[in-house]
Amino acid sequence: MTTQSSNLPLSGLWQPHSHLQHLYYGPSSVEKHLLSTLPSPSSSKVFIITGTSIATKTPLLHNLEHLLGTHHAGTYAGIKQHGPIACVDEATQLVARDPSIDTILSLGGGAAIDSAKTVSFRTHSRTGKWLTHLSIPTTLSAAECTAAGGYTGADGVKTGLGAARMGVTAIFYDPGYAKYTPRRLWLATGMRAVDHAVESYYHPYSSEMPWKVLSYWALTTLFELLPQTPAAGRPEQLGDEEAITRLLLAAYASSGFRGRNFKGGMGLSHSLGHALGSPYGIPHGETSCITLGHVVKYKAKNNPDDARQIARLLPATGGTPSGDDFDDALEVGDRILRLVDTLGLRQELGSRGVGKDQIPIIVERAMGGIKSGPEYDAVVRLVDSFF
């Protein structure tokens, strides 16, 4: 059975995930459809996992608990960035106290969603029962798209978990919930979606249909709409409902069609992002701002096949192809860097408190423990350019 994808000749395989049963989008989609997606509309008990900011600075949690009514079995509102193990432990213990809970509902960004997946995984390990996972994403991180989660240990290193039944059963892309997201967080997670869309193009297990096709559409939408996000005003004035909904769907298109035959990590930008993220307290969207443009240019310079695939993305970024794959791929990298500048997200590792003495540690983490060799040396030079 063919498992890898190739463009010489065009061939590949896409095996859809089976965990997602519903994807609702648009204004009031939570209010209209949430209760009907419960495993038992009459008796299901739902435990909510979210973060402190959503719980204390927006009406979202209160509204959601009110909507659930007697279905609401409890809430954990202490999830922090990168899903610290202590938070996941506390949420898991609360769920364990009530055996009637059959559903977990994540409200928020990647930390809340991944933590909810981990709680479901642990509940299954303890009881043999998987929790139905419903998700209301409020960022563009696309964590709701995969059947994998994880947590950050006390040492700052992320531990990943994966199982088909960890996947989200129903996603609600409701602009009424996402509009409260602070602008910088919204834009940074939008760059994470850009990262997903771009790295799908040079991944050997990325299928032409539907993932690359939809990633192209996603990238076009992200380049068009992210710069239009209002620059001023209260956080709840993020933008109009249609633009928010289109961006949420673009985030899904960038990652939701990965396929269950997909193997390995996303790509070098993601690997470096994980090596930089939780160990140094940098949000993953902001790691993409640091890494992606430079990684794209690195890939183009070191592999003609990668350059050929990256060049295909130039029109999606607003560019006009020259016919030279190498030059066009470099232009994609430059346009990503300019987008980061336009969004006001340009930063260097030094400004995040990371010293150059950390470069070998970062590269070793990103490369799975490799400590020497030509590729290691090349990635060391790449990471040095982040400063």
Rank of each mutant, 00 (worst) to 15 (best):
5 S>V: 02
99 P>F: 09
278 S>R: 01
227 P>N: 04
195 D>I: 08
77 A>F: 03
74 G>V: 12
55 A>D: 12
375 E>H: 07
303 N>A: 09
234 R>T: 06
219 L>M: 14
14 W>R: 06
218 A>T: 05
356 K>I: 13
240 D>R: 12
307 A>K: 00
149 G>R: 03
30 V>K: 01
383 V>I: 00
246 R>E: 03
294 H>W: 04
223 F>T: 07
277 G>V: 03
265 G>R: 12
180 Y>Q: 13
240 D>E: 13
227 P>G: 04
152 T>D: 03
315 P>G: 04
127 T>N: 14
297 K>M: 09
132 T>I: 09
370 I>P: 04
36 S>C: 05
280 Y>S: 12
105 L>Y: 13
230 P>H: 12
141 S>C: 10
325 D>W: 05
112 A>Q: 03
193 A>N: 05
125 S>E: 10
231 A>F: 07
11 S>Y: 03
70 T>F: 11
131 L>F: 15
332 V>C: 10
376 Y>Q: 04
377 D>V: 08
376 Y>S: 04
302 N>D: 02
347 Q>T: 15
184 R>N: 14
349 L>C: 07
232 A>G: 04
323 G>D: 10
75 T>W: 06
384 D>H: 02
163 A>L: 11
21 Q>G: 13
6 S>W: 02
340 V>E: 04
104 I>L: 12
300 A>K: 03
14 W>S: 05
315 P>Q: 05
301 K>Y: 03
258 R>I: 04
